[in-house]
């Protein structure tokens, strides 16, 4: 049976009609199941853990990118469980990357049940699908062999699944593309117009990365839109950790 987890913002009456249409479509397709609605004290993680404990093999998250990111973080602990997505709300980039355009087409995608095994990244105790960004003057130790640091500051991005169709990051290759983005400026150009600054990007294929800031300072990392703070981030690839239902138009 399918378990549907509804994001808390779906209680807004403006979504009622659209939800009703989708629920009818799921019933017609014979894949409607039990519904769990998130609320103030009912978290994504707790809800998914409860559903799996009750025997759920497929969990469908109904919501936006933030909902999908929190669902991935929870479901990664249960390798036998498959994740589905019904996009709702403003930002649905992850669903689009996976070939799921809108709520109605998501019903057909769920019914067709084309399952892909994708790599996940793990940063400290959290999982992510797309990429991890850490801005500032930080140092990345790559594969336990060498360290990479931007000379004049910049940003470190560990990419598993690129949000850009032409960007580096294939979530089936068992590795990250670790990018170090720096701003390089010509003297006269930067003096008269900072807008002329051009960014240089270094790319390293990696499987595990440790990111540290000088003096063990606190850093902020953003993964799948979720923000984390720590003095050290240990990032490792978890090959084929996520079973996810995808559409035919997926960008992988």
């Amino acid at each position: 049976m399918y378990h549907y987890v509804y994001e808390s913002f779906l209680t807004d009456p403006k979504f009622a009609k659209q939800l009703s249409v989708i629920e009818n479509r799921l019933t017609d397709l014979g894949i409607y199941g039990s519904v769990h609605r998130l609320a103030l004290f009912k978290t994504m993680k707790g809800t998914i853990q409860d559903a799996v404990r009750r025997g759920a093999k497929t969990v469908v998250v109904v919501g936006d990118d933030g909902s999908v990111a929190r669902a991935i973080d929870a479901i990664a602990e249960f390798p036998g469980v498959t994740l589905g997505i019904i996009p709702f709300g403003e930002k649905n980039t992850i669903a689009k990357l996976l070939g799921i355009d809108d709520g109605m087409s998501a019903c057909d995608v769920l019914s067709a049940r084309l399952v892909e095994e994708l790599d996940l990244g793990k940063v400290n105790n959290h999982y992510f699908l797309t990429s991890l960004h850490i801005p500032g003057a930080v140092t990345a130790e790559c594969n336990g062999q060498y360290t990479v640091s931007p000379v004049n500051g910049g940003e470190i991005c560990v990419s598993n699944f690129s949000m850009d169709a032409n960007g580096p990051g294939d979530p089936r290759d068992g590795r990250f593309e670790t990018m170090v983005k720096t701003a390089t400026r010509g003297f006269f150009r930067s003096m008269f117009s900072p807008a002329y600054a051009s960014a240089g990007t270094s790319i390293f294929p990696t499987t595990h990365v440790i990111v540290r800031a000088p003096g063990k300072a606190q850093m902020t990392a953003i993964a799948d839109g979720q923000s984390y703070q720590d003095a050290e981030f240990r990032v490792e690839i978890m090959p084929r950790r996520l079973n996810i239902i995808v559409g035919k138009g997926r960008q992988i």
């Binding site: 060498y146 240089g200 990007t201």
Partner: peptide, 18 residues
Amino acid sequence: GNETIIASGVKVEGDFTS
């Protein structure tokens, strides 16, 4: 897809293999 780029403004220290 194994291309590595070490751009200007970046310092790499250690045993680098690709």
